[in-house]
Amino acid sequence: MTTLAQRVPSRFLPVLATVALFVLAFGVGSARYDGFASGQVIANLFIDNAFLIVLAAGMTFVILSGGIDLSVGSVVALSTMVTASGLQAGWPVPLVIVAVLLTGSTLGLLMGLVIHKFDIQPFIVTLAGMFLARGLCFLISVESVSIKDRTFRDVATAAIELPGGVTITYNVVIALLVVAAAMYVLHRTRFGRTVYAVGGSESSALLMGLPTTRVKVGVYVISGLCSSLAGLLFSLYMLSGYGLHAVGMELDAIAAVVIGGTLLAGGVGYVLGGLAGVLVLGTIQTLISFQGTLSSWWTKIVIGVLLLVFIAVQRTIVRR
């Protein structure tokens, strides 16, 4: 244990703890239930949570910079609504995709500008964004709109065969591509490193002459873009657009990012941590559904407890 701790820098420990937790939860499941330890169960974790993985990636940017984005769940709903009604109106699929992504990133840009230019707390601004996006859904339609477009349905139901008879959907591929892109941007570009710098100490970043304004606004654009992309994935998953989709999903995204070891104060964390956080949440849900006798609300309680544990762990790390 000591050799491990010595070899691994302490900044990786929270992420490793999450991964260990995932392995542990999965191990418990495998030991207790037949058929749990199958490749398809793991694949399903990704299939059922692809949109959440994308959301968590975007949220990681915002939280790393020291902000928070409460609007993501509503933007997912808005994106499903734009997708469904656009397709219903006979728009071509590429146009729909562009429209959705533009909507999300524009909303993110607006929120970022208000936060930065007028110095209003991100919490309030993105709360307003949350209301706005959710309200816009209902402005389009109060009812659920189902998606009947052929191309869209084909992509949604297409299965990609992996070795071992495991199948995944295109959603999973996209989600993993987003994670890879997010990692590249965060770790390999000046923008990404500045996100960390701003989260670590905004005044220092400013004195170091880094582009703080671009970063502080940019993270909300990225989060908006990720949310709308997650909305597209969610449309593929649900094959409908509805204003009550993804209610409370912003909390799941925040929880996944925090459980993944990202400090809410900013500056510390990894996209992969968010991915691990999503997988932990997904595994807990799978465990509870395999158990059968445990009711679904235990999921919420367990997530709350996990949040608490990880926050407590982070406190001790920060104090040290």
């Binding site: 928070i68 809410l264 235990w298 309680i301 367990v302």
Partner: peptide
Amino acid sequence: IQPIIATLVLMTAGRGVAML
């Protein structure tokens, strides 16, 4: 602990408790 996060714990778990 930052208040937003501290109370997020009960926000998430609380509904589960209510359903329990």
